[in-house]
Design a protein around this nucleic acid. Structure first.
Lengths: 161, 161
DNA sequence: CTCTTGATTTGACTGGATCAAAACAACAGG
DNA sequence: CCTGTTGTTTTGATCCAGTCAAATCAAGAG
């Protein structure tokens, strides 16, 4: 598998280094994670990696088109490997879990606002806010979100496609 | 005009204070501004207002449903008075200008992802990214975005409805 | 006018992210 | 295989938006 990443890195004109492979490994296992979680997870594979190195790697990956950065309001930025297929996200207000959703209605509608006001639009970003299944249960059970504040990153869930 | 805001504040169960009226005044003139710009502008009317007071006021306004907070990726949070009508935003990658757009296709489509993955969705946030008219010209003229970095807030532009 | 309660001020602090310079490693060429 | 160049990683400092807590102050009820 790593061979694939090596190829992709080279194709993007990036050198193949241990930190980069570690980060790619983490991203492959966890679809939506923040920089800090990536650093922690990557350290199990490559102990000496520093948080700043992770930022550098992520910047390089995003720049090279291997990863995508998403920034849900009110939280740290998350990174994912799914690039190229324009898909959107479901974010849980309770625990911060992010799930993928394929483009809402086919392909085109997402990219055409009624009035562009002179803007040259190149991307439509759609974020659905709500409560994930777990948080709905928690809220009904304990009266108010309980398992919420504890872990609001590092968790992930893949759905679309 | 202030009378209206006084009424709205009271209706929301909030006290009518000078800082609040100042902030509302700024928001009425500038549809999409960040907290810092609001503080600066409000100071022309009420010199002694502190940045933290602005955060407090904004929090109160958002909590009371008088203002809405939007957080475009990569920039500080912006605030606007248009609440209740679900409209979306066009953000310029060059200068950060934000313009309003009415709901893409009528009302409903915005709220139905193809797969909810068990989520109870309550809001669909749509952000269109692109280049505003000015930045398109600037980019074509100077080869690369020029008037960009200088002012990326405090500017605003109203369009939809 | 006075009192209560909520709002503002002041000042310190957090967390995510960026920057710059120095140490280091990938990989092309000999 | 060895060497040099150049892009990466490290280290450490720094920035900015935003938050928190205690003290002061003013809105509005009585």
């Amino acid at each position: 598998m790593e061979t694939t990443w090596e190829t992709e890195l080279r194709t993007a004109g990036l050198r193949v280094t241990r930190p980069r492979l570690s980060v790619l490994g983490v991203l492959a296992e966890h679809p939506h994670v923040d920089a800090d979680t990536i650093a922690t997870a990557a350290r199990t594979v490559h102990p000496s990696i520093s948080p700043q190195a992770v930022y550098g790697v992520l910047k390089a990956l995003v720049g090279g088109g291997l990863a995508r950065r998403i920034e849900p309001a009110g939280g740290p930025a998350l990174y994912e490997l799914r690039v190229g297929d324009n898909h959107h996200h479901l974010v849980c207000r309770g625990c911060g879990v992010v799930a993928d959703v394929d483009c809402v209605v086919g392909q085109a509608p997402c990219l055409s606002p009624s009035e562009t006001a002179g803007f040259a639009v190149d991307e439509a970003e759609v974020v659905f806010w709500g409560l994930c299944a777990d948080c709905q249960v928690a809220r009904r059970t304990h009266g108010y979100g309980t398992n919420s504040t504890t872990e609001n990153s590092a968790i992930e869930e893949g759905v679309g496609a």
